[in-house]
Amino acid sequence: MKNSIKVERAKKDLTQADLAEKVGVSRQTINSIEKGRFVPSTILALKMAEVFKTSVHEIFSLEEVDWQG
């Protein structure tokens, strides 16, 4: 799964720590999500979309490998 969290953060001038505080997780969690090492829950993804004032689809997109088992 790809994401554009870093780009969205830059648009809103937010650091990883700022975003983490707003959505209620640790900075390391935001870092892991950005690097694609951790897939956020639906609630966390929705919270991020809310903070960035955009939709979940604008932030996260599926890749071919996500469709495989």
């Binding site: 209620g24 997780v25 640790s26 390391q28 969690t29 892991s32 951790f38 966390l44």
Partner: peptide
């Protein structure tokens, strides 16, 4: 800092 990543 207890979040979903820590649980996983």
């Amino acid at each position: 800092q207890n979040d979903e990543r820590v649980v996983l």
